[in-house]
């Protein structure tokens, strides 16, 4: 079977799940990059350096963690409530179940 035919033979729900899988991994990579680069570059402190506070926290916590956390929350809401598609799982007959 050629690659194109193989892809054709895949179920729609499987292909949709695979697409969602890739979007989730891509989103994770974006947030990991943001946090790692920002905090990695801005969170160390030299002796005598003044503490910069934003909302009562060190500024690197706000810009490198709290704000991306807010975006992560918003993305998760959008992804789960708007992007993800429903699949009819309840109609699947459970074959071969030992009970």
């Amino acid at each position: 079977m050629r690659e194109g035919e193989k892809e054709e033979s895949l179920g729609d729900s499987f292909r949709q799940s695979r697409k969602e899988f890739l979007v989730m991994v891509a989103a994770w990579a974006v947030f990991a990059t943001w946090t790692t680069i920002y905090v990695g570059r801005n969170s160390s402190s030299e002796p005598g350096e003044p503490l910069r506070l934003v909302l009562g926290m060190p500024d690197w916590v706000v810009f490198g963690i709290l704000i991306p956390w807010g975006f992560g929350l918003a993305f998760t809401m959008w992804f789960s409530l708007c992007f993800m598609r429903d699949t009819d799982l309840e109609s699947i007959s459970e074959e071969g179940e030992k009970e």
């Binding site: 799940s17 929350l73 459970e94």
Partner: peptide, 26 residues
């Protein structure tokens, strides 16, 4: 900080397929 996307990855990444495959397999 990774917990900002844990519900997306740890919960969402495989859940639909796991549920589907486990039902098919019984």
């Amino acid at each position: 900080a990774g917990y900002m996307v844990v519900p997306l990855i740890a919960l969402g990444l495989m859940a639909k397929r796991i549920n589907q495959v486990s039902r098919i397999a019984g």
